[in-house]
Design a protein around this nucleic acid. Sequence first.
DNA 1: GGGCGAATGGGGGACTTTCCCTGATGTGGT
DNA 2: ACCACATCAGGGAAAGTCCCCCATTCGCCC
Lengths: 211, 211
Amino acid sequence: MTRLRLVLVDDHAMFRAGVRAELGDDFDIVGEAANVDEAIRVIRETTPDVVLLDVHLPGGDARAVLEGCLSDVPATRFLALSVSDAPDDVVATVRGGARGYVTKAISGPELREAIQRTADGDAVFSPRLAGFVLDAFAGGAAEHDEEIDRLTPREREVMRLIARGYTYREVATELVLSIKTVETHVSAVLRKLQLSNRRELAQWASDRKLI
Amino acid sequence: MTRLRLVLVDDHAMFRAGVRAELGDDFDIVGEAANVDEAIRVIRETTPDVVLLDVHLPGGDARAVLEGCLSDVPATRFLALSVSDAPDDVVATVRGGARGYVTKAISGPELREAIQRTADGDAVFSPRLAGFVLDAFAGGAAEHDEEIDRLTPREREVMRLIARGYTYREVATELVLSIKTVETHVSAVLRKLQLSNRRELAQWASDRKLI
DNA sequence: GGGCGAATGGGGGACTTTCCCTGATGTGGT
DNA sequence: ACCACATCAGGGAAAGTCCCCCATTCGCCC
């Protein structure tokens, strides 16, 4: 059987050298690229079986590469390989068309297997990351965070300050209110969001990048 | 002349393989580590000439490694080698005792030269990064924050968590202490820094980018 | 050996903060 | 008139913060 043909896309020459050293004997590395434009060109020219694709690249990200050549090389499978295990990165890259996503903490043998499975049509994910993708597909689309819509403008304003660690007294001073009014708003926010204290609120706001 | 003895500290086996493949002929790689504790142990055991040190590690960061063994191996030089080019990371790592800081975008020959120069006592920086360090020293070096030197290691540890908003109870759980001990440390920190409550402490720590 | 700093904790107290409850008033929109 | 919203009050339970006091242990240095 002929060796699988690979393209490596990563802006770190050192990392590409590592992959070559670990995998060069088992796969045919037909091309390398260090940025988005180069990657698109090389992939089109070589139509490899699998592309190892770093998520963060000079001149764009993995999605830019996927958009630029996915439709031109239908037989090529893309395996994202990144230092980032951020849910946003994972979900965005998979939405863009990657067939798998593993972190660079992976070992040589594991990567070898991941590439083989990707070429076979499997979806390969580092254990912790599979959950993010499933979550995103399961819950993500419909709701649009109805919860925050139930807060009044004033409540949102108070909520933001509370989430930053202000005390009720400080919020009252900042917004020129009485402490009691702040208490009322905070209670309403906690009740509406079904949270039980300010720390959870800070977490909630941080998750939604509201601070 | 005998080859320089290296230790590689990086949580990505793949990256270490890349460095080995690129440098293994020119340097004597006497040890490798993938996390903070392992790194400290290996460095103490091998007392290499140069340590290639990733900034972001499981169980801590490069500073933890530097704190853990800098005084034990006075002849060893540390060269930070990271994907991050964030000013905070650079400055923090250099403050911690690293003698240089280059990004992983570096090429094999450049890394070879950087290691040689580090061993010779030079300070090696990627071009864009040198500026950050110089800025940091220009903008307030004279004082060297005598205040924080007056804190004991344990006090600093407690202080960091308090500054992040942890309650005494949570700090106690995290560090496996009694609440009373946490209170004692916090009181000492507030007294030494002449602050009056945890919010001022959070502000103080944030100003100094200790969180 | 004696002193000293560091780390660990216990008791207790004063005070603030948080969160919830039950109210009230006024305003603007439909 | 009704309702959502914003404003404020009194009261109280619970938690957390910060300050005293104190003791023990350990290791280090003179």
